[in-house]
Amino acid sequence: MALNTPQITPTKKITVRAIGEELPRGDYQRCPQCDMLFSLPEINSHQSAYCPRCQAKIRDGRDWSLTRLAAMAFTMLLLMPFAWGEPLLHIWLLGIRIDANVMQGIWQMTKQGDAITGSMVFFCVIGAPLILVTSIAYLWFGNRLGMNLRPVLLMLERLKEWVMLDIYLVGIGVASIKVQDYAHIQAGVGLFSFVALVILTTVTLSHLNVEELWERFYPQRPATRRDEKLRVCLGCHFTGYPDQRGRCPRCHIPLRLRRRHSLQKCWAALLASIVLLLPANLLPISIIYLNGGRQEDTILSGIMSLASSNIAVAGIVFIASILVPFTKVIVMFTLLLSIHFKCQQGLRTRILLLRMVTWIGRWSMLDLFVISLTMSLINRDQILAFTMGPAAFYFGAAVILTILAVEWLDSRLLWDAHESGNARFDD
C-alpha cells in the first residue's frame, strides 16, 4: 500500500549564491595573561575582544583620537594649579581661619623630617597626573615632529594605576569627618577644581587605549598563520617573532617567553612588605597634641575612634588600611606557593584573586592621604596640633611594595603550573 505524501511548494523562490571570495581570516594573537594562541577576527570600533580561555580583555573598544586626548590633557593642565594650590577646605580653629590644600599637606610631611613619605604622596597625587598630561601632550606634538614615541607609550600603561586623584578625593571626605570634632569646616574653591580634575582624569584614563596608539604610530604586520613560536610582548602586546637582537619589532624591548626574574622580584617585594606591615600596624601612625597632652593612634585605634562619629567612614578606612593590605599579602603568598608547588586545582579562583588584588591594591594609600591633609588643617603649635607617627613611612612603603609585587608577577606562570593543553579552566 503506497502512502500519498503531499508536496510542499515554497511560496518564495530560494536563491543560492556561491561564495565568490575567501572568507576573511583572523590574525593570530597570544593572550598576555595566559599565553593562549588564538585567531582574533577583525574588530570594529566600539567592540571589545576577550581571550577565549581566561576571559582577559585583549582589545578595548573604547578609543579616543589623539586630538581629543590632547584637549583633555590641556584642560587638566589648566585645572591643576587651582586643584593643588587653592584651598580645598576652610576650618575655623580657636577663632582663626585655616586653609588646607594639597601642596601644603605634602610640605608639612616633608617639613617634619619625613621627606620619603611626603614624596610618596607627591608622586601619586601630583607627579603621576602631571606625567600623564605631559605624556599625552608629548605624543600629540611628537607625532607631528617625527619624534620617538616608544618610551612614552611604554610608560603610559604602567602609569595608570599610580594616578590616585580619586583616592585622594575620598581622603578629603575622611579628613573632614575627623577634623569636624575640633573645628567648623567649609569647602574651599580649590575643592571644585579638584573634583573637576578627578572627573576629567577618570574619563581620560578610561578612554586612553595605549594598544590602539601603538597600532597608529607603529603598525606591524600581524601573524596570519598559526605558529607556536609566536611570542607576545608584555610592553606593547604585539604578537610576532623577535628581531635579530631578540627584541620586539614594535617597542624594541627584549621579547622573552616569560617575564625575567618574575618570581624572585615578586618574592622579594612580598617578604619586604610583610616585614614592614608589622611596625606599620604596631607603631603610632598619627599623633595629636591637645592642650599640651599627647595622644597617639595606631591604624586600628584611629579607626575605632573614627567609628564613634561615623561608622560608615570608619568601615571604608578599615577596608583600605587593614583589610586590603593583608588580603593582598595572603593572596600573593598563596599564588606564589601554588606556582612553586605546581598546583593544578582552583586555577579559576587564583586568576580571579590576582585580578582582584590588581584592582584594589592602590586604595591602601588612602590613610597616607588623610594624614597629609589633616596635617595641613590642624597645626596650632602646642594648643592643638596633628602630626604623623613613625608607622606612616612603614605603611606607605608596604603598600608600594605590594603594588610592585602584583605588577611583577607574570600571570602566565600560573598556567605553566597548571596542566598543559587546557582550553578551559575551572575549579
Rank of each mutant, 00 (worst) to 15 (best):
A100P: 09
I199N: 07
F74N: 05
I96R: 03
H237K: 09
T327E: 02
L290C: 15
H418E: 10
S308T: 06
Y394C: 03
L336Y: 07
P10L: 10
R260N: 13
A272H: 01
L66R: 05
L373G: 05
P249G: 05
T5H: 08
L191Q: 06
M120D: 02
R226K: 06
A423L: 10
N379E: 01
I58V: 12
H340M: 10
D63W: 15
C124E: 04
S45L: 12
L89D: 07
P284K: 04
I299P: 05
D60F: 11
T239A: 05
T327G: 14
M76T: 06
F122M: 12
A71G: 03
V170P: 12
V179H: 05
T327C: 13
F393V: 14
C236F: 00
A70H: 14
A398Q: 05
Q108E: 06
I383V: 06
I96E: 01
S286Y: 02
L347Y: 12
G26C: 14
D381Q: 04
I199P: 09
I98N: 06
M356Y: 11
K13W: 10
L276F: 05
I91F: 03
A70M: 15
I287G: 02
F217M: 12
K265C: 03
A18R: 14
W162A: 01
V406T: 08
L377M: 07
F386Q: 00
H418V: 09
K111G: 14
A70S: 14
V406Q: 10
L306M: 08
L368M: 15
N209R: 14
L337A: 13
S176W: 06
L336A: 09
G171Q: 08
R348I: 15
V232I: 05
G26N: 10
F395L: 14
C31M: 00
R350Q: 11
T402H: 13
R226L: 07
V152F: 02
Q186A: 15
E161N: 12
G293W: 06
H261T: 06
A56E: 12
H90Q: 07
I199Q: 05
Q55V: 11
I316D: 02
E22S: 14
M332I: 12
Y28K: 13
R258L: 15
T110R: 09
K178L: 00
F333E: 08
V203P: 14
P284L: 03
I185S: 05
D426I: 12
I330Q: 09
P6S: 10
Q55I: 12
E228M: 09
Q33T: 12
G173D: 00
A73C: 11
V16R: 11
Q264R: 01
A280V: 04
M120I: 08
L156R: 02
F386N: 00
T239N: 06
Q47M: 09
K328I: 00
S119F: 02
I58F: 06
H252A: 03
K160T: 07
S193C: 02
C124V: 06
M356V: 11
I253C: 03
